[in-house]
Each structure stands twice: as structure tokens, then as C-alpha cells.
Write a protein that binds this DNA or RNA. Structure first.
Length: 866
RNA sequence: GCCUGGGUGGCGGAACUGGUAGACGCAAGGGACUUAAAAUCCCUCGGUCCUCGCGGCUGUGCGGGUUCGACUCCCGCCCCAGGCACCA
């Protein structure tokens, strides 16, 4: 059959669908454990099924797919799964707004997004697909909860939460906007609720310590963020005796060196001690009002600027344990109740907050660290002195450097029995209770007689009932669901109530990567240890920087818990982490119609009113700014390969990707260029074997062969070691450019054509991980029966890649003055000699004698003159 | 305020341990093909000066320094992005 021009044109739609079907039919990406092969577990952060994939997903998953396909070609047994983080609030909101059941909404979204992911040609083993909202999944999470409860790793305690009285539900911090509920704008209250917690603090030192061991595989900044979040600080607990009783106030400080300068005491407003001290005194009323005010202030804190430091005197005194000086006690709005002991010794001379407070309430100041540059005077100071210096007014410690005195003073206080070295952390236990419907039920039953009773393992899963009424108000739908709530006590069989809180969705995402290793395993404990041992840890994890702290920290914690249960055997879940940048695009707005979608702009004018469009800042793509690109549209117009190509080529993965329509066009053009050069040679090279590399070549063909092997090396290094796909692709572009430059050999010139064929095949193979469809098609056209996806990654031949001539740069005093082309094997002495004799360079020597000649082998000669 | 990144042509970005700054792509300009256009293929492309050369000077946020030689290392400063933010 004669091929017409039509079916020889690059038509992405046809070939992409063809190969996607082929991969699906052959289950190409299905993997099983194979002890003979080296495993490679590649994972991208699974998506929340919000409806459609966005460009951020396209980028994230394309990066992962390149690595997965590359590793596969390198002979690894690659696990590359995909699933759905399918519990969460948007589903509940959709239910409230549109009256669709969360389950229906979620599953429809999954359906749609799965179609889109398949259309991108990602190499997932879909047989391992999981969805966290299925009982089949969360059943095991409930089991781990029971085990954690047993070990005291899960516990219940009272804690304060953001509470919206109208919606009668708890709000996450990010759902409180300027102290108001994000949905109904009622004033958010502080509410004290019994909540479930995971004791993450039990592993705090281990989590911190391993930050350093993860060193090579994780980005530095993620580790610093985690370390800061954990916030370990070494200090001292010091007792401050009350002036008129035997009791004492305990404070935590890291600055015992300033203790002689502590002139008053501060207590967090919410601290019970505040009302205890004020009780029955004239200040009681003022104290109570103050506490109420601060509680409200606290809600505003996140969104407002610094608020003023305020306090109220509690008409009580304690004593400085070293000077016995009387210290007035204040309740203050800026002291944190849940850090340290909730009480703070105030040193106004050396702490800016304390300084401001002291000025406001005219409290005494004593300088205890003297500034070596300029003598400090407590009377005239305008701000606290917070740098290093020499101790003064500090008894036997006078004259010491304050940093050096830290240990000495700790020893002294410990010897007096008034202090004790301790460690404090910023990290708190992880509150996992959510007063919401669309989440995994917490497997606990409350009985009036027996108290808190865990659901017996045999009764798991506690299935989330689907027949609920979901309204915006009136609290959790679960709490209103009679047949769910009303149950019998597992221990006394009497009437009992179920826990109606569900778990934070971060719990599901803390172990999904484990479940991917044995997604169908239906025996206790839901994870098959043999498979865990084969696949874990994840060799490469890829996702957005927005999860740098919470998701990654929780996953690290959960891994430790599961290890303790013997469910798996690794210390850390993710050996290597790549955090990819955001996708950004310029914003466009019209004076009349506000932000505009790209399709609403026609030739720089607003489609509706023909006004000039103003190009705004480049920002992260978001629906509200309308600077979005629809992946479906891209695929429709250019195909998945072009979309992938652009995401990879425009910038390295860790940087932000700036969207450019012209850049997409360029990527499409390049693929067309590859397609045409292969098509062009196809008839001539179809039956020719690629050049095998024994006989000598000359001229252009030798250059082409050299370039071919240099490209293999460059692409291999860029992809394998650095994940720099943009430079890898430009290397292939260079090779393609050379192919276009080469003079076309005669039809019968088999030897020359074999070199061309080798170059063409190399282009196709090297591009395979990036653009799998077009390359698979071209591979087939070139006469291959076995699919490219299973082809071996080429090895480069160092001999073929080596240059026979090298260019030596000649510098005079570090300035480029000339070039020298010499045979690669030329001796150093000869090169130096040639450089010194060089005519052009000679002009710049001004007849002077070189003082020195620097020679960098195979690179340059620098002649130094005075 | 503190902690991370990062400032390179008109633009996105290269330059891996100090050794030819600007690979590759986009945009722009020119040429070939075409009746014409599109598509395609080829060439030019940091600035500046002139004697247009295989040319000189200059140029990687700014100011210093180290070095034979600095986009790269050190010190000081400016700007941008992100994270944390009263943690005692």
C-alpha cells in the first residue's frame, strides 16, 4: 500500500490514542516483585479528586513519568502507582452547595481525572489504584488507630478549637478569615473540645535527628523547614518562689544568663494561674475582662499585624531566685500558654518584647549584659540590647561573656536546686479529630458504664454511613445519624454511643505509599510485610513544596509507628525528595471586566468591550486570577507529547515554570521536526542496520557519530544524576540540528546511511521517556517489532564520543586573545610552545617577557605579563 | 524581624569541582521554496566603537576583595520570591 501524504503527517491524536490503548491492552506497566531485578519505587504525590487535573498535576506527573520510564529502560523493576486522596472538605461543600452526595461527587471526579491522566500517557500500574475513601482502605487505618490507642500513641484530651456557632463545626486555622468563618462570616469563637491526638512528640528527637541523615536526598530548605517546625531548644526550668507563700512559679528559659536582670513575671492570659492569683482581689474583675479580650484577640492573630503588648497586674509577687528581688506578676497577651510552662521571666533590658511591656507599665530595668561597643544605661535605653556582651550586675558571674556563662549559670542553679536543664519543642501533638462527615470514622465507642471503649478489631471497619443528610448547619451529619451513633458497648453490651468525629485527611496520606505495595492485601494488618520489604522505601518522591512540612512530617511519623508495630521495616519513607516549582502565568485584566481568561483576550483586547488589556503580574495559576490553561485544550490542540515536552523544556523541575503559548508552539514544532527527519529518511534506512562502530569514519559522518555519542552521554547524565530535563532535551535538539545539516547520502550508500540510522534511532530512544507516543510510533515505523518502552537505554562509546581535535584558549593576563586548534593527543609542552609563538597573541605581549605561564590541560594557556 | 532560595540578552533558560559567558528554545530581522500565503528549510541576532576584522572596548543586581583567571569563592549593600513569625 502506498502511503499518502496525509498519514505521513505528524498527527498526535491518532498515534497517542493508539499507543495508550496498546499499553493498556498489554498491561505494560503492571509490576510484581522480582528478586532478580533491582527495584525502583517512584511516586508522585497523589491528587485530591477535585474534578479535573490542572497544569500543576500535568507538570508533576510528567516529571515523575520521565524518571519512571527512564529507570525502566535502565533495567529497573519500576513501581509507579497512582491513587486518590479522596476524603476531604470540598466533597462536603459540593454536597451542601449542589446537593450531590460526597461519594457520588468524588467518584465521578475520579472517573474524569483518571481519563485525563490516561490521556497524558503516564506509565502507571493502574491495577494498584487506590482511593482512600473506600472502607477497604481506611479499615486498616482504623486498625492502626486501635493499636496506637493501646500503646498510648493515640489519646484524647481537651483542647481549644476555632468554632463557628452558626455552622456548629470546628474550623481549621486557614478557614478563619479575620476572625470570621470563611463560609458564613459569623464571628469565630474559641471552644474547648475533647479531641483525639497522635503523640508525634514521642518521636520528636528521632524525627529531628534523621533530618540530617536524609541530607543528600532531600532539598536543604525542606529539611530546614522541618527542623524549624520541630523547634528544639535547650534551656532551663527555673523556680521563682512566691513572695508570700511556699509555692513557686516555674518558667522555661534559654537565657539563664540574663536571670539577674529579670524584674517581673509574665503569665499567659489563658493560664489557670491567672484567675487563681486574682481571686478575691480588687483586680479580679479586670483580670477576667482581660482574659476574655485576649481570647478574642487570639483568633485574630494570624491575619492581623502585631497587636500591642498588654497586660494586667495580678496584685501578686514572686522572688528572683538569685537576687531575692520582688517581681510583680502580670498576665500578658503575648505569652504563649502552650509553650514551655506558660510563664515567662521578663528581662526588659535584653528582650524587646519585655522592654516594650516594661516601658508601658513603668517597670524597672537592670542591665546585665554590657555592650562592648557602647555603654548601656537602663535609664536612657530605647530598645533591648540582644547581642553578645559582658555580664554585669550578675554577682559572681560579672565579667564573663554572656554566651559562655550559660553553662556556668545552669550548673549553679542546678546546684542550688532552683533550676533543671530541660529541652523544649515547638512541635505539638497532632490533633486528628475533625467534626466532619467525609472522613474515616474514629473506631471508638463511649459507654456510660465502661467509659471509652475501642471497637474490637473483628468489628472493623467502622463504615461511614452513606445515607446521611448533609446540610451546611447543625454540626456533623454523623452526629445526627441515629443508627450510626447508637450502638452497644463491646464490653458490657449495654447501650453506647459511637465517636462521631472523623480523622484528619492527612492520616490517609501518611501511609498510602505503603498500601501501594500491596493494594489488594486483605489480611491483618493490611500491608504485606514481604512486599513492604521489597519495595520500600520510596526511592524518589516528587511533589509540591506546599507539603514540605505537614504531609512529609506526618508520613515520617506514621512510618515510625508502623515500624514499631512490625508492619514494615524502614526508618524513613522517602529516600529522595524532589519538590517541583509552581506553574505561573501572567495575569490579564480589562478595566471594565476585571481578570480575563486567555480565551477572552483577542489580539490584546478584551473580547467583550474591545478595551486594551492590561498585562499584570506573573502569578501562580489560579481560577480566581483566571491565568489558567486547561490541559484538555492543550491535548486537543497539540497532543499530550507536546504538553509534556513544554513542561520539561521550559525550566528545570525545582524552579517555577512560566507558561508561554509560544513556547508550547515551539515544542510542537520540534516534535514535527523530529517526525519529518525520520519520515524523510525512512525509505532509505528502513532495511539498514544502525552503524555498529568498527570501521573508521571521516568528515561529516564521523562528526555525526561523535555528536550522537556525546548526546547519549549528556542526556544520560542530565536525567540520571540531576533531573535536568531541559538541558537533556536541548542536547537532543542539537543532535537533530546536526542531522538536518548533514549532506544526504546517496540511496545506495549503505555505510553512510547506517550512521544516519544510528543517529535517528538515538534521537528516538533518548526522547522516549519525555514524549513516549511519538517516539513509539517512529520506532515502529523504523521497523522495530518490540516496543520502545521495553528497549534498553543506549550506552555511549567513549571512543566514538571523543574529539580528535581540541580548542585551546590563549589568554594574556586572563583575557581571551586567541584560539589554538590542536590534535587531542598533543603534548603539554608543544601546546605551551605553540601558544607562546602564536602571532595574534604576540601583539598583546607588547614585547614583554612572560612572568608566568599557566596551563590548564586541554583547556587553556594563560600568559602573564607585567 | 528571622530562615531559605534567587537576580545572567527583548524573553524562558545554559555554563557540572573557578578556566572560551549567553548552549537550546522563544521573539525579531533577512533569505530560499511558492502565482501568493501558511507550513517548511537556511542565515543573522548582548551592548558599543571603528579601520567591519579570525577586530577593540565593555558586559552575569551594586561596591569592594582573593586569584594568573570570578556568573562561580569571600566581605558589605540593594532588590525579588517563598517559608516562619511574639517559641522566652
Amino acid at each position: 500500500m502506498v502511503e499518502t501524504d496525509m498519514n505521513r503527517k505528524y498527527d498526535p491524536r491518532v498515534i497517542e490514542e493508539k499507543w495508550q490503548r496498546c499499553w493498556e491492552d498489554h498491561k505494560t506497566f503492571k509490576v510484581t516483585e522480582d528478586p532478580k531485578k533491582k527495584k525502583y519505587y517512584l511516586l508522585e504525590m497523589f491528587p485530591y479528586p477535585s474534578g479535573k487535573i490542572h497544569i500543576g498535576h500535568v507538570r508533576n506527573y510528567t516529571i515523575g513519568d520521565v524518571v519512571a520510564r527512564f529507570k525502566r529502560m535502565r533495567g529497573f523493576n519500576v513501581l509507579h502507582p497512582m491513587g486518590w486522596d479522596s476524603f476531604g472538605m470540598p466533597a462536603e461543600n459540593a454536597a451542601i452547595e449542589k446537593g450531590i452526595h460526597p461519594a457520588k461527587w468524588t467518584n465521578e471526579n475520579i472517573e474524569e481525572m483518571k481519563k485525563q491522566l490516561k490521556r497524558m500517557g503516564f506509565s502507571y500500574d493502574w491495577d494498584r489504584e487506590l482511593s482512600t475513601c473506600e472502607p477497604f482502605y481506611y479499615k486498616w487505618e482504623q486498625l492502626y488507630f486501635l493499636w496506637m490507642y493501646e500503646k498510648g500513641l493515640a489519646y484524647k484530651k481537651g483542647s481549644s478549637v476555632n468554632w463557628c456557632p452558626k455552622c456548629s463545626t470546628v474550623l481549621a486555622n486557614e478557614q478563619v478569615e479575620q476572625g470570621l468563618c470563611w463560609r458564613c462570616h459569623s464571628e469565630v469563637q474559641e471552644n474547648y473540645l475533647e479531641q483525639w491526638f497522635f503523640r508525634i512528640t514521642q518521636y520528636v528527637d528521632d524525627l529531628l535527628e534523621y533530618c540530617d541523615r536524609l541530607g543528600d536526598g532531600w532539598p536543604e530548605r525542606v529539611l530546614t523547614m522541618q527542623k524549624n517546625w520541630i523547634g528544639k531548644s535547650y534551656g532551663l526550668e527555673v523556680d521563682f518562689p512566691m513572695a508570700d507563700s511556699d509555692e513557686a512559679i516555674k518558667v522555661f528559659t534559654t537565657r539563664q544568663d540574663t536571670l539577674f536582670g529579670a524584674t517581673f513575671m509574665l503569665i499567659a492570659a489563658e493560664h489557670p494561674l491567672v484567675m487563681k492569683l486574682a481571686k478575691g482581689k480588687p483586680c479580679e474583675k479586670a483580670a477576667m475582662e482581660f482574659v476574655e479580650k485576649v481570647k478574642k484577640q487570639d483568633r485574630m492573630m494570624r491575619t492581623s499585624d502585631y497587636y500591642e503588648k498588654e497586660g494586667v497586674f495580678l496584685d501578686a509577687y514572686c522572688l528572683n531566685p538569685l537576687t531575692d528581688q520582688k517581681m510583680p506578676i502580670y498576665a500578658a497577651n503575648f505569652v504563649l500558654a502552650d509553650y514551655g510552662t506558660g510563664c515567662v521571666m521578663a528581662v526588659p533590658t535584653h528582650d524587646q518584647r519585655d522592654f516594650e511591656f516594661a516601658k508601658k507599665y513603668s517597670l524597672p530595668l537592670i542591665v546585665v549584659i554590657q555592650n562592648p561597643e557602647m555603654t548601656l544605661d537602663a535609664e536612657t535605653m530605647e530598645e533591648a540590647y540582644v547581642d553578645e556582651g559582658v555580664l554585669v550586675n550578675s554577682g559572681q558571674f560579672n565579667g564573663m561573656n554572656n554566651m559562655k556563662a550559660l553553662d556556668a549559670m545552669a550548673d549553679y542553679l542546678e546546684s542550688l536546686g532552683r533550676g533543671k536543664r530541660t529541652v523544649q519543642y515547638r512541635l505539638r501533638d497532632w490533633g486528628i479529630s475533625r467534626q466532619r462527615y467525609w472522613g474515616a470514622p474514629i473506631p471508638i465507642i463511649y459507654c456510660d458504664k465502661c467509659g471509652t471503649v475501642p471497637v474490637p478489631e473483628a468489628d472493623l471497619p467502622v463504615v461511614l454511613p452513606l445515607d446521611v443528610e448533609i446540610k451546611g448547619e447543625g454540626g456533623s451529619p454523623l452526629a445526627r445519624h441515629k443508627s450510626f451513633v447508637e450502638t452497644s458497648c463491646p464490653s458490657c453490651k449495654g447501650p453506647a454511643r459511637r465517636e462521631t468525629d472523623t480523622m484528619d485527611t492527612f492520616v490517609e496520606s501518611s501511609w498510602y505509599f505503603d498500601r501501594f505495595c500491596s493494594p489488594d492485601y486483605d489480611q491483618k494488618p493490611g500491608l504485606d510485610r514481604k512486599k513492604m520489604d521489597y519495595w520500600l522505601p520510596v526511592d524518589q518522591y516528587i511533589g509540591g513544596i506546599e507539603h514540605a512540612i505537614l504531609h512529609l512530617l506526618y508520613s515520617r511519623f506514621y512510618t515510625r509507628v508502623l515500624k514499631e508495630f512490625g508492619v514494615l521495616g524502614v526508618d524513613e519513607p522517602f529516600a529522595n525528595l524532589l519538590t517541583q516549582g509552581m506553574v505561573v502565568k501572567e495575569t490579564m485584566r480589562c478595566k471594565e471586566h476585571g481578570y480575563l481568561f486567555p480565551h477572552e483576550v483577542k489580539e490584546g483586547k478584551c473580547e467583550r468591550c474591545s478595551r486594551e488589556v492590561v498585562i499584570g503580574k506573573t502569578e501562580k495559576m489560579s481560577k480566581s486570577l483566571k491565568n489558567v490553561i486547561d490541559p484538555d485544550y492543550l491535548i486537543e490542540k497539540y497532543g499530550a507529547d507536546t504538553a509534556r515536552m513544554f513542561c520539561l523544556f521550559a525550566s528545570p523541575p525545582e524552579k517555577d515554570l512560566e507558561w508561554s503559548d509560544q513556547g508550547v508552539e515551539g515544542s510542537f514544532r520540534f516534535l514535527g521536526r523530529v517526525w519529518r527527519i525520520v519520515e524523510d529518511y525512512l525509505d532509505d534506512v528502513k532495511d539498514i542496520k544502525p552503524f555498529a562502530g568498527k570501521d573508521d569514519l571521516e568528515g561529516e559522518l564521523k562528526d555525526l557519530r561523535r555528536k550522537t555519542h556525546q548526546t547519549i552521554k549528556k542526556v544520560t547524565d542530565d536525567v540520571d544524576e540531576r533531573f535536568h530535563f531541559n538541558t537533556a532535551i536541548s542536547a537532543v535538539m542539537e543532535l537533530v540540528n546536526v542531522l538536518y545539516q548533514v549532506k544526504r547520502p546517496e540511496k545506495g550508500d549503505a555505510r553512510s546511511l547506517s550512521v544516519i540510522k544510528d543517529a535517528l534511532e538515538t534521537v528516538v530512544i533518548l526522547l522516549a521517556p519525555f514524549v513516549p507516543h511519538i517516539t513509539e510510533e517512529l520506532w515502529e515505523k523504523m521497523g522495530h517489532r518490540d516496543p520502545l518502552v521495553d528497549a534498553a537505554w543506549p550506552a555511549y562509546d567513549p571512543a566514538a564520543a571523543s574529539e580528535e581535535e581540541i580548542t585551546i584558549v590563549i589568554q594574556v593576563n586572563g583575557k581571551l586573545r586567541g584560539r589554538l586548534v590542536v590534535p587531542a593527543g598533543e603534548s603539554d609542552d608543544k601546546i605551551k610552545e605553540l601558544a607562546l609563538k602564536d602571532e595574534k597573541t604576540g601583539k598583546f605581549l607588547e614585547g614583554k617577557k612572560p612572568v608566568k605561564v599557566v596551563y590548564v590541560p586541554k583547556k587553556l594557556v594563560n600568559i602573564v605579563i607585567r
